[in-house]
Nucleic acid binder design. Structure first.
Lengths: 336, 336
DNA sequence: CTGAAAGCGCTAACAT
DNA sequence: ATGTTAGCGCTTTCAG
């Protein structure tokens, strides 16, 4: 910068003012032009590290996630966050704690030592967490997780409303009997009380059904992968149960259910309707394509960053992002 | 740091030496202990920004990708990169150019202004690129892309060898006739010469088949998505062709092929064998699970970062990472 | 409207 | 074995 100033025949102060685009210290048009010209001629680029040292602002945000790889949606979260960051001229340090608290602490320290302006704490499935102490008193937003005692806003999907929507789709198609929930609350040995998403989805579903005095034929609690959907649907069929509609807690479960149904010579949606949650890629690859409630990962990423960069005080509200209904071909009137 | 020095009763220099763990300037055990104690007591954390300004080293790397969201593998690349970065105590700025050259230039500038030590230029499918000029002369590694004139190493999957492996799997099972390639070189209007991966996969495949004097019944050039696999396999069947084995250029194509085969009452692998490329999640969800050649995204991410942080000169070699064969249930001896 | 000078927190010659 | 001093590149009072 001092080279630029010298070449423009002004002091470094003047160069600084015009190069950082400040207007409050009125510089003559002539001087501005000379500085800009000199900067261009010399190929001047600011050293943001030096600027940050002085201003105590790095325009840098730490994005700490437990695992960016496990779920295929993760990319969407990051894409949303990245887009907003870029619009505000900020950069993201992305780190992954791999679920280890020690790693998380070490990484948060590394971020803080680099003077990040704020931190996003992201979880790949919705759950309660306890943020590392080094984050207390800092600008933080919780993405897809909740920490009741901790002073930071949370951004999560509106699962209860999604559960209601799933119920409404089935009711609207005329289903009142033979409705089974596959996956349910995910009340399995590893999570005996169910998971956050499982509990909320079921709550919304049951609420809507109850209003119409419809009761589920059953809720199958199991893990949420393709193989579980196959196994449990097959078991259902083998036990002589003949569902008219399936509410699968994930698209992966629906995928497995499709396989079991096809094996049994049953068609979707002619014999059995299916509605699920997530909107993974396979939801639209299946034939018929799946009607599902989409996890709004992109929007969540955006919202978290907008909270951080929007200039409003952060607060500690829970922001529930709507899960859009993707109506496709897997729901029809009940089969004969 | 000066607080720590004062409390320890030493100069700032001494404090600096012990806190940055330098051993070349021998400090007495006593002084070291006092400094460490004072640092712990005061909760001292170094300001890496300030250190970087002085040392001209930020321990920070820019990871520029064209789209981290499009492909589900992207997360694996990043996970690999992140792990190595962490092992070397470096942080990653991750940015996405969304395929726009202007955006890419702007982001590269933002990274350079923040004094990143190196840059990874990543593409989500293997292809030739022209790196932005602002990167000339800097430490760069190309991830999943090639830039012949540019002085930087490339890390790409070994597609030719994968093509050979696909051929060998089929030959070993006894296939010599009725082999069709679905997806082929991806010689479609958008990419009339085929894609890099398509061309290399086909080259390897043909090479191995030719050695055994086996010729493909045909190569169907189309896009590489699930719907294309369904449509083209269906068309094949409708045209009275009865393939004994399918080499699908992606798992998605195989997925679609499975659907068309099932519709026609054909079973895998009893009637038709299938082998493909990528090893996406669905490859193992399908029934039977798909035999496929895995894109080594995790390894690629690691390799790129190890090149950067390993201390060796970068060079400009092309590093071809093996694509492991995942043998599952979709290949058997030719059907009756 | 512009310039001189101090200092952000740290490291590294150079003394001692 | 430790301290003095000078910056790294930039912003920001404060004087003119």
């Amino acid at each position: 910068m001092s080279d630029v100033a010298r070449q423009a025949g002004v002091s470094q102060t003047t160069a600084s003012f015009v190069l950082s685009g400040r207007t409050d210290m009125r510089i003559s048009e002539a001087a501005q032009a000379r500085v800009k010209e000199a900067a261009a001629a010399l190929g001047y680029r600011p050293n943001v590290t030096a600027r940050s040292l002085r201003t105590r602002v790095t325009r840098t945000i730490g994005f700490v996630s437990d695992a960016i790889t496990t779920t295929p949606f993760a990319g969407e979260v990051i894409r949303g966050a990245l887009e907003v960051a870029r619009a505000h001229d900020h950069l993201l340090f992305i780190v992954e704690s791999e679920g280890s608290a020690d790693t998380e602490t070490a990484l948060v320290n590394a971020l803080v030592d680099r003077q990040v302006d704020a931190v996003v704490l992201a979880s790949m499935y919705t759950r309660y967490i306890t943020p590392p102490k080094d984050l207390h008193g800092r600008r933080v937003v919780l993405l897809n997780c909740l920490a009741p005692g901790f002073d930071a806003p949370s951004v999560i999907p509106d699962e209860v409303e999604a559960g209601r929507a799933a119920g409404r789709v089935l009711l609207a198609a005329g289903h009142r009997n033979g409705i089974w929930a596959i996956g349910g609350h995910q009340a399995i040995p590893a999570t005996p009380e169910g998971t956050f998403a499982g509990n909320e989805r079921m709550r919304g579903l049951q609420e809507v059904l109850r209003q119409e005095r419809v009761v589920l034929d059953g809720v199958v609690e199991c893990e949420w992968n393709a193989e579980d959907g196959y196994r449990e649907t097959r078991a259902l069929l083998a036990a002589g149960r003949r569902p008219r509609a399936l509410v699968c807690s994930t698209d992966r479960l629906s995928f497995g259910a499709y396989q079991a149904l096809a094996e049994a010579g049953l068609t979707v949606p002619g014999d059995v309707s299916a509605v699920s949650f997530d909107d993974q890629d396979i939801a639209s690859w299946l034939r018929p394509a799946l009607t599902t409630l989409a996890l709004p990962h992109y929007e969540m990423g955006r919202t978290a960053m907008e909270l951080l960069l929007g200039g409003e005080p952060l607060g500690s509200a829970v922001h529930r992002i709507p899960m859009p209904l993707r109506e496709r071909g897997s729901v029809a009137a009940p089969g004969r």
